[in-house]
Simulated assay, not measured.
Amino acid sequence: MNDDLLRRLRTEQARALLDDADPYEAVMLACDLLVAGVGSEAVTALAAEPARTLATHEANRRLAAVVAELGLPEPDLPTAVALIAADACERILDGSLPAEAGTHGLYVVGYQGSPLDDLLPAVTALAAYLEDDLGGRADDELRTRLAALARIILDRVRAQNLA
């Protein structure tokens, strides 16, 4: 399995640990694993699920089976936070995650024991600006400030080799 697939798998594993896996992402990941030659029974079963209608609890269960079958250890809390935060930041910066969702997605830095918890006030300030001043619709200023915060988070995650 290549590094990108392993990172994606660990990120979904972290999401399931802290909240819930993204059913669509979990199914797409399983399909990509199959293409890469990782054709275990659990991977095949998850890839066969309907990506758009798979229930969250079922995605969590199937993803857990994939992780168990592949023998991946559960990430510790700091690693799980770093994986989810880094993924959100990369998606914010490449434009695949809307600023509104990205802003709220970065609240993950505030988990107790997070190595990024000192950045929670910056996330909270952006979310307050988004909700209170902009009525929930991002503007260019928010996008610029969010991109700057995403770069800071990514730099910290990479410098500390957290994810």
Rank of each mutant, 00 (worst) to 15 (best):
L142Q: 00
Y107A: 08
P73K: 01
L5H: 01
A14M: 06
A68P: 11
R156S: 04
A85K: 01
D118H: 15
D19K: 15
G113S: 08
A138Y: 00
Q160L: 15
R7T: 14
V38E: 14
L142V: 00
A26C: 06
V66N: 02
V81Q: 09
S114R: 04
A88M: 13
Q13G: 09
R158H: 13
A147M: 05
Q112D: 10
L130P: 02
A147T: 01
L6A: 09
P73N: 04
A88V: 13
V27P: 01
A86I: 10
A42M: 05
Q112S: 14
P50E: 07
L46H: 00
A14W: 08
D132R: 11
L116E: 03
V38K: 10
T44F: 08
A68S: 13
L162P: 09
L34W: 06
V27R: 00
L29S: 03
C31G: 15
I152C: 13
A88Y: 15
G71P: 04
A16Y: 06
V81L: 07
A65E: 13
A88W: 13
D155S: 13
L54I: 00
D94L: 15
E25N: 12
H57M: 09
D76R: 11
D20G: 10
H57L: 12
A36S: 13
G37I: 05
R62W: 09
A59R: 03
A101N: 10
V108E: 02
D19T: 07
L116V: 03
A59S: 04
T44N: 02
S40P: 08
E12G: 06
A68I: 02
N161W: 09
L120R: 08
G135M: 03
R15K: 14
D132I: 11
A80W: 00
D139T: 00
R15I: 01
Y24T: 06
G135I: 06
A59L: 08
L34P: 05
G102M: 01
L162G: 02
T144Q: 12
D4W: 12
T11Y: 08
Y129S: 12
L17Q: 15
A99T: 04
L5Q: 02
H57F: 11
L149N: 00
V43H: 12
P78G: 02
L17K: 06
R8V: 10
L9I: 05
Y129R: 15
S114C: 05
L63N: 01
R151V: 11
R10W: 08
E12I: 15
H57N: 11
D22R: 11
A68L: 12
A42S: 12
D87L: 02
D155G: 15
R158W: 14
A125T: 09
Y129A: 11
L83C: 02
D20A: 15
E100V: 03
P78D: 03
H104Y: 12
N2G: 05
A150Q: 05
E58A: 13
R137T: 09
